[in-house]
Design a protein around this nucleic acid. Structure first.
Lengths: 250, 250
DNA sequence: CGACATGTTGAACCTCATCAACCGACGTGG
DNA sequence: CCACGTCGGTTGATGAGGTTCAACATGTCG
């Protein structure tokens, strides 16, 4: 929502070899030679929480990989009602093929690190390496699946199921993303990347309802909160059940 | 929801040249020589309303173009609550690249005609003609945009805005799809492709609420209903306003 | 004609939004 | 140092928008 442009910290010396997402992000489709080409057009950028990265009102001239942090994609009605239509995490990709115009706004939900590529140069690379286009396509399909899952949530789930589903998604995510304490199998612990207000915008609720449902889940011992942001899930199956989920999947 | 497989009416003699969607569907990316190849693997199929085309529980072994009618993509919670996560119309494409498994069910909302291609053969063609893959990618991006628009609707719009948005979408569609009476500019007339029950599942409402909001729009003269299914919109801008839309777009 | 599916309307209820007060943490300036 | 404003979050009271349950209307098909 800030008008100021994100500060650019070019990092030409940065070797992709040491990048945390080298083998997961779109560059995972490329061999070392290709990645070197990519490195030449890439720029690391740090974006503080709350800053707008892409606005739906301005053309976009770059693509980006998310290195760390969370980015929210939002849509807003003329009267200000807002909905988060997508969340991007570590190896995800930001940007739209075939169009300079994004139909939504991208904003840093937390402090964020991204690796940007200028539009033209990146599209040239996509032309050279068909594997890259396929990777982008695959990523878009995943985003579509996620969006449709969320449509089911927004249209048909209760407030408690919505909150539980959100936590369940993060919990699953935390299990995949390395560094797990895996204290006991079937449990998880993670940090909330969103404020209550953002959670509300993601779930189609109000902050008050989100807060109430969280305390409900807390008092029924489905989750534990150490701070406002640190969540501990003792039993993932119970959480999945509270989320009204197909738990024979995922 | 029916268990019976759709009846297959192979139509080898059918020339793609005469196909209503020859230049709009994915085949629009192909020249006449390529289309001839495509015609050899294509089969026309008629599917009666209500019949399941693709189930999320069975692998899919074909792709398809929609020739006529409407197909709904649905997701269902274990307890039966249902949400339509996508609607496919005439030149749209059904099927999922890179995966035999669809995470949703496709069902004929009206009587439907589709043009199917066996998986393997089609993927071979995609490999040969890069334009085809790009076309599929583009289509997926459009579906993603539509899904995210719908997330905003499901999460943040009121019942009246939801119904109005749905009608507005169909009205816009009816203007693009040839055969318009364009009695007066800014007006539109079309047939509802969905039952009240399906509309409810699409909008995250109940049939009763859909019905009530329709009569509200009717009594406030935003729309006119000749039959239950035939809609007349005298002023598209008023409808857009009732939909809570950005009307400086689209 | 009766049976069944689709759609409308009414009344009661309930979930969630709204409005408001309050809490703790943090930063700033007198 | 403390008063203060601000921000993120919680909790309570109230009410509206939609759901639910039920009755009825309409249309279609054997």
């Amino acid at each position: 929502m800030h008008g100021t442009p994100p500060s650019i910290i070019p990092d030409v010396l940065q070797r992709c070899d040491h990048c945390a997402v080298r083998h997961q992000a779109v560059c995972g489709a490329m061999d070392d030679v290709q990645v070197k080409k990519l490195a030449q057009i890439a720029h690391r950028k740090k974006v503080p929480a709350g800053q707008t990265i892409i606005s739906d009102e301005e053309p976009v001239d770059f693509f980006a990989n998310v290195i760390s942090g969370a980015i929210k994609l939002t849509k807003t009605l003329p009267d200000g009602r807002q909905q988060i239509v997508g969340l991007l995490f570590a190896p995800d990709f930001l940007g739209r093929a075939y169009s300079k115009h994004n139909p939504y706004t991208a904003e840093a939900a937390t402090d964020v690190e991204i690796c940007t590529f200028p539009n033209a140069a990146f599209e040239r690379l996509v032309g050279e390496y068909p594997g890259l286009q396929q990777r982008l396509f695959q990523h878009t399909l995943d985003e579509l699946d996620a969006a449709r899952d969320w449509m089911l949530l927004l249209g048909r789930k209760t407030a408690e199921e919505k909150v539980a589903s959100f936590l369940h998604m993060l919990a699953r995510r935390s299990l995949l993303t390395g560094c797990v304490h895996k204290a006991s199998p079937g449990s998880a612990a993670f940090e909330l990347p969103l404020t209550r207000s953002d959670m509300a915008d993601y779930l189609g609720l109000t902050i008050e309802t989100v807060s109430r449902q969280l305390t409900r889940l807390k008092t029924s011992n489905v989750v534990r909160l150490s701070t406002n942001r640190l969540i501990m899930v003792p039993d993932l199956d119970r959480l999945a059940q509270a989320a009204g989920q197909d738990n024979h999947r995922h």
